[in-house]
Every structure is written in structure tokens, then in C-alpha cells.
Nucleic acid binder design. Sequence first.
DNA 1: AAATATTTTTAGTCTTGTCTAAAAAATTAT
DNA 2: ATAATTTTTTAGACAAGACTAAAAATATTT
Lengths: 217, 217
Amino acid sequence: MFTLSEENYLKAIFHLEMMSGTGISTNAIASKLETKASSVTDMVKKLAEKQVLVYKKYQGVSLTKSGKTTAARIVRKHRLWEVFLVEKLNFSWDEVHDVAEQLEHIKSPKLTRELDAFLGFPKTDPHGDPIPDHEGRFDSVEKRLLSSLKENEVGVCVGVDDSSSNFLQYLDKNGISLGEKIEVLSIESFDGSLSIKVAGKVLSISSKIATNIYIQS
Amino acid sequence: MFTLSEENYLKAIFHLEMMSGTGISTNAIASKLETKASSVTDMVKKLAEKQVLVYKKYQGVSLTKSGKTTAARIVRKHRLWEVFLVEKLNFSWDEVHDVAEQLEHIKSPKLTRELDAFLGFPKTDPHGDPIPDHEGRFDSVEKRLLSSLKENEVGVCVGVDDSSSNFLQYLDKNGISLGEKIEVLSIESFDGSLSIKVAGKVLSISSKIATNIYIQS
DNA sequence: AAATATTTTTAGTCTTGTCTAAAAAATTAT
DNA sequence: ATAATTTTTTAGACAAGACTAAAAATATTT
């Protein structure tokens, strides 16, 4: 069994490994968790003893099989709760994160199992991210950044990179949501900003926005 | 804002005050929380500084208005989650307690509000206990013990005193559930055991059982 | 390859919440 | 009313998790 703190470390390392492969540095973990590198060193030693990760001094850490499963199960719970909040309790996709962050630590296999069934075994959360199964497996949705489209290409919004409230509210305001068709009308070569058509309306978005939206063709 | 531990102390004291009035002893709290009296003294000092209770050395403690509201809100969440687990996730009434014990600490006013609405604003939990409103008010269901009935009197099961898994499973096995009509056929003066009729079947129960079932006439 | 800069670890401290053992107060019994 | 008992509090210690400051290792420059 893991403490709240241990679970948060596992989840952070899991996410970092998803993005940048194996061998995660102390500093990367510290900045993700908004803590200090020295605290990370302490915790990482503890987790190494529990066999959920491998740690060699000055070499960063890597999750073991068991560590990956444990972390994926936390992510699974987080995303299931997000679906619940949006579909059943009228939360919008920018409001779910903080609450799911708490709910993901509830320990009850039956609860997770039944919640999954109650929601109809969803495959993705409200931001388009895949929900791992009990064994920690999940389809890595093949997705590209909106910014990788060329002029006149079309895609469907399948996810976002940044889940901050600000960003999601911006998307809502402009009619961009999961499943929405996005057409690139033109690309401004000067600053990389795009003119896109979404939900029938034409819209100009910065390149920064475009690198935070995932689409599928 | 209160820590997990502080919330558990508040809830314990709240429950003790419900049963035995004001001025709760250190020892009573310690035994309810399965901790030591010295730990209670420490925590109680902390909570007194936070103005949620009044503490005078050697005199026991009493919740303030604000302490009562805080505690009732935790109880509110606990009982709403119990309803959710039983009504939506196929938990039986003997399985809900441990999970609700975790869920009651989730901090999100919107979550509590929406959950309440989602469940149709229930007034009692699966054990028949009243669900406080946001302000901490609740109808104290006037209930009597089954053991207070005389021969040939009839009542409806509205709650239980003991919520342990063992006891609830015993009730399930014998067809006793909330809303069930119970008729006292005879009382054995020797040991106080009762012969009752419930769900069409005749059943003999000990006096201990009868003092753990609440009925309304 | 030495010097500098960065990253990581160690050592020691702090807070929260708990515990044990001993002291102090309150209660009960004689 | 004094003695014995029980309850409660104090004092000091400990574990978890975090922090600061300094030391050690690694990386980067020149």
C-alpha cells in the first residue's frame, strides 16, 4: 500500500516517462511536483526499496513493471472520475482536474470497477486522454498536434496537451471541444498563427494554442 | 481548512455529542478513534485554537457552532456517498462504510452539491441515518429501539445502531432491511429474546440484536 | 584538461501527528 | 478526610515528509 505522497510521486514519474522516455532526473520530478530536489532524493530512495522504481545515484530513476502498473491504476482512477464529474455531475472539462486529483487516491477496487461499469466502460477522459485498464494497459491514441497540419488540411480534436483551466475555458469560448472538426484555412508564416474554421466559425489562433491541441485526421 | 486528522476528530466528537450530550472526555474520544488519550489532548488543543471547540483542562470538550457545522458537513458527505454507492454502484449496505470514510474528506463544495442533486436530494442514508443539509441541519428522525416494542406491536425498520459488516450481513440474511415491517410475536422474559415476523417469515432474535435495530411505529 | 557551472546528494532541522512513561488532577472508596 | 484509583495532562521521543545549506558528483566551457 502506498501513501498519498508516494502515489503522487509515482504518477509524476509515470507522466514524465510517457513524455521523455526512461531515466527521469531528480530535478524534473521536483519541478513537476513543485517540491525540492532534496525531497525527491529522499522519496525516491523509499520507492526504490519498495521495488516500484530503480534508482542509481546521480542517474535518475525508472519505474519497474510493478511501478508502472501502480501508477497507471492511479491515472485510471483519475480519468474515470473525470468522466463521472463531466457526464453525471455537470462539471465542465476545466473544473475536473483538482477534484479528480483528490478522488484518484480513494482505495477500493470495487469502487473503481463499479464506477467504470456505471460510466459504460469509457475509453477516454474529457480531455481525450486514454483510460488505462485494470492491468495498466491503454491504447496510445495516435495523435498529432494541430500545428502539424498544412493549409487546407482537416482534423478532429481528440485531446489537449495543457489541461489548465485558463486554456480549457479559452477553447470552450471558441467552440473547440473533443470531436469537433477543425479545418486549417491558412497559416501565417511570420508568427505561425493559424486561421481555422471550427463549428462553422472562422477563428485566428496563435501557434502556442495550436501546439496544445491534438487532432486526428 | 482542516487536515484529515482534524476532520476525523471533529466527526468523532460530533457523534459522541449526539449520543451523550456535551462535555466529551478525552478518553471517550481516544477510544472512538482507537488512539491514545495523550494524542487526543494534543489535537484538542489545536482544534481549540482553531475555534471549533472549547477545551478546559480536565473538563472535556464541546464543539462550537462552527465546529458543529464543520462536522455535520463531513457527515453529510459521508452519507451522500453511501447513498451513491448503494443506489448507483451496487454496493450493499454493509460494504459502504470504509469507502465512504475516505470519500467524506474530498474537498469540493460543487461536488457535494451536484452529488446531492444527482441522487435526488435524499434525506437518509442506506442505514436510515439522516443526511444533514449544507448548513448542518437535519431532522432527527424519532426512532425507538425494536427492543422497546411490546408483544403484538408492529414497527417499520428505519435504521440500525451498529453498522458493522457482520451485523448488516446478519440482517440481510434474515430479510431485515430499511422499510421492512417488523411484528413482535412474543418476548421471552428469561433472556429478552424476541420472536418476530418479518418479510412473511417468523424469526427468533436475541435481545442484543433487538437493541441495535431502530423502528418507527 | 582544467575551470566553471549545474545537478544531485547529504546532513541537519522543522512540522504534524503519534506514542510511552511519568506527573498531576479528579474521582471513588475506606 | 485521607487513601487508593482512575483519568488527564505533560514531557520527551519518533516517523514521515518536507526544507535549507553545504558537499559531492557530473556536465559544460574555455
